[in-house]
């Protein structure tokens, strides 16, 4: 009875919603893209990054993926652009730019 949330939306008839509105799955929120909330966007300058990872735990949204003790680029599908990581970085490897797109306007 595992839930396929792609089948649950505002058109789903009552007989086909999950019993008691339970969710028989974990982590389904990933398909909800909060990235569009951003008004400012962090840019990752990997060349400046020393991989100290001080930025990774401060993110309220877990948008700084870490693998093998190294961070990679932001999860822009979900990053809300709060800017906490920018201030946590001791090496200026994260820059905040205006707008929802992760591009530097020259």
């Amino acid at each position: 009875m595992r839930t396929d949330i792609s089948r649950i939306n505002e058109h789903t008839p009552y007989e086909e919603l999950t019993e008691g509105l339970m969710m028989f799955a974990g982590g389904t929120s990933k398909s909800f893209k909060t990235g569009e909330w951003r008004t400012n966007t962090p840019i990752f300058h990997s060349e400046k990054c020393k991989q100290c990872l001080l930025c990774a735990p401060v993110c309220p949204d877990g948008c700084i993926p870490v693998k093998d003790s190294k961070r990679s680029d932001f999860d822009y599908d979900h990053c809300k652009g709060c800017g906490i990581c920018v201030k946590a970085c001791p090496f200026n490897a994260i820059e905040m730019v205006p707008g929802v797109e992760p591009v530097i306007n020259s």
């Binding site: 982590g27 929120s29 398909s31 909060t34 309220p60 949204d61 877990g62 809300k80 709060c82 906490i84």
Partner: peptide, 10 residues
Amino acid sequence: LSPGHRMCAG
């Protein structure tokens, strides 16, 4: 805790 939750930015 997966992303996609609706807590405020920051």
